[in-house]
């Protein structure tokens, strides 16, 4: 637990001082979502129907932007070796990194999402569904994304490769996240979708740090 707190605190400190990464992710999120009405038209009847899906797709892409650097700087400057040699297990490191990624990216997306919901004319109930689905879904993006970030450490063209590896794994979150919002727009209960997202989150919490640790182990060798 102390190890986890140390790692999260360090990551937040680094993100706060060094990085515009998190801010860029959120700006990208808003900008990309704003582009869609120009492409598909601004019909106020249609926008609420496609809004939930678009916001979720753009959130996936935005979360992915800052993933590549999750372990990269520690890999480049040799910190990863010392992190591995420390008494703190790699799984804890992976969990801490994912948590920090969520705190610097996922939360910002969560805050920006209701604004986009207004731009897409989503009804009030759908905004609640959007917030709830993102609260459950975005941590999954950070946890699963950590696996991809660890796998592509030191790879050629790491960024594109990361997208290829991770986006297919994001599809279930997208289906149920967007499904919850669509359900709310159509006036259906959204409990089942949120339960599934919660299940994904629990599964990701249990398995992703373990897989990330295995990937990091390979990167250190």
């Amino acid at each position: 637990m102390i190890g986890l707190a140390l790692i999260v605190r360090r990551e937040l400190k680094l993100a706060f001082r060094g990085g515009t990464d998190a801010v860029i992710a959120v700006v990208f999120f808003v900008l990309a979502a704003v582009l869609f009405p120009f492409g598909v038209g601004t019909d106020p009847q249609m926008l609420p129907r496609i809004g939930g899906g678009i916001i979720w797709v753009v959130a996936l892409l935005a979360a992915m932007l800052s993933l590549e650097r999750m372990f990269a700087s520690d890999h480049e400057d040799g910190s990863l070796d010392l992190l591995y040699l420390s008494p703190v297990p790699l799984g804890t490191l992976a969990l801490g990194k994912a948590l920090a990624h969520w705190l610097t990216t996922g939360i910002l997306l969560l805050i920006a999402a209701p604004v986009l919901a207004l731009l897409y004319n989503l009804p009030g109930t759908a905004i609640g569904a959007l917030a709830a689905s993102m609260l459950l879904g975005t941590p999954v993006l950070s946890l699963v994304g950590g696996i991809g970030a660890a796998l592509t450490l030191g790879a050629r063209r790491g960024g594109v490769l990361l997208a290829l590896l991770i986006l297919p794994l994001y599809i279930p979150v997208l289906i149920f996240g967007a499904g919850a919002i669509d359900g709310a727009v159509a006036g259906r209960p959204i409990g089942p979708q949120l339960m599934v997202l919660g299940g994904f989150l629990l599964a990701a919490l249990a398995l992703a740090p373990w897989a990330t640790a295995a990937a990091l182990r390979q990167a250190i060798e």
Partner: peptide, 26 residues
């Protein structure tokens, strides 16, 4: 272990860098 590279975070001070490793190693 001291490797080829200096595992330092450039935006953290010397003390912060050192204290992080010390705490992490208990």
């Amino acid at each position: 272990y001291v490797g080829h590279m200096d595992p330092l975070k450039l935006s953290m001070t010397a003390t912060e860098n050192l204290a992080f490793w010390a705490r992490l190693y208990g």
